[in-house]
């Protein structure tokens, strides 16, 4: 399929990118793995594409003390293979390794997937569970938005018109924390029907603290707050975890589509949350 015609610019700095985005109906292009299909199916008709793929300051992972800073155009492959991420935030590498296929992971970018904000995408729920922070550049300068404020609605984020996501800060997971991303899908390339990102701190035979992000259980990624509360102090082996994870569907509003009806997803999220928590806890 052939997209409608558009202008194309390829800035080399963030400032140039922000200037290029001024006025008109512009879209930011990074790896193109979500935007190009929309263009080719003629579901989107921007006048201008601003390709940030060559903005070098937006690429790569750096150590910033208690945090890692991940440039928005770092590819999924870059995330999966990055030694800092492997050391300090293995959840991100594990979840990213489930994204689509190698071809997509070599082109698609971390920031692109988050900016696209498909609730069926894996990374939004992971970023939410990690309490990541999003650095956004715009005509009036830069601002930082918490993950809880970043995902606004289906395919909508806090990134406004004329703005671009520059980088994402994720906290390093300290000693005692462990994580797991449990993705449920039918074929490797398919979107998650439901996904669960679990980060837990274990205290002996019980869970001390947990953070749970849910993929595809609503129009945005969600935190399983009721489960998180119930997991605090829950015993690993006497049904405590199951009692807590049985509350994983509370507050969710999952879609009904070809992947499954809402009731199936509400069931699935409980099973998958239990599995994710137990896997993270090494049990």
């Amino acid at each position: 399929m052939i997209p409608a015609s558009f202008e194309y610019r390829r800035p080399s700095t963030v400032d140039e990118a922000v200037q290029a985005l001024v006025g008109g109906d512009a879209k930011v292009l990074a790896g193109g793995q979500s935007l190009l299909p929309l263009l080719r199916l003629r579901l989107a008709f921007p006048d201008l594409l601003v390709d940030v793929g060559r903005v070098e300051s937006m690429r790569g992972v750096r150590d910033d003390g208690e945090h890692l800073v991940i440039g928005a155009v770092t590819t999924h492959h870059g995330v999966v293979t990055d030694p800092l991420i492997a050391q300090h935030c293995p959840l991100l590498a594990q979840a990213t390794s489930t994204v689509a296929d190698p071809a997509v992971r070599h082109r698609g970018t971390f920031g692109g997937a988050l900016s696209h904000a498909d609730p069926a995408g894996d990374l939004p729920a992971v970023a939410l569970a990690l309490d990541a922070e999003f650095e956004i550049a715009g005509p009036t300068g830069r601002r930082t938005v918490a993950a809880s404020e970043f995902f606004v609605d289906y395919l909508q984020t806090a990134v406004g018109a004329g703005e671009v996501l520059v980088s994402v800060r994720v906290p390093k997971l300290g000693a005692g924390w462990a994580s797991h991303y449990e993705k449920f899908h039918r074929v490797a390339q398919a979107w998650a029907i439901v996904g669960v990102a679990a980060i837990v701190r274990r205290d002996g035979d019980s869970i001390a603290e947990a953070r749970i992000g849910l993929t595809n259980m609503g129009s945005t990624p969600l935190r399983a707050s009721a489960t998180e509360s119930a997991l605090a102090g829950a015993a690993l082996h006497d049904g405590g975890v199951t009692a807590a994870t049985d509350r994983a569907s509370e507050g969710t509003d999952p879609p009904s589509d070809l992947g499954g009806a809402a009731d199936y997803r509400r069931h699935l999220v409980k099973v998958l949350t239990r599995r994710a928590v137990l896997a993270a806890a090494g049990s």
Binding site: S256, A261, A262, D263, Y264, H267, K270
Partner: peptide
């Protein structure tokens, strides 16, 4: 046999 409002899954 599907009630999307029922929620929860039967088991």
């Amino acid at each position: 046999g599907r009630d999307t409002e029922a929620g929860g899954g039967a088991q």
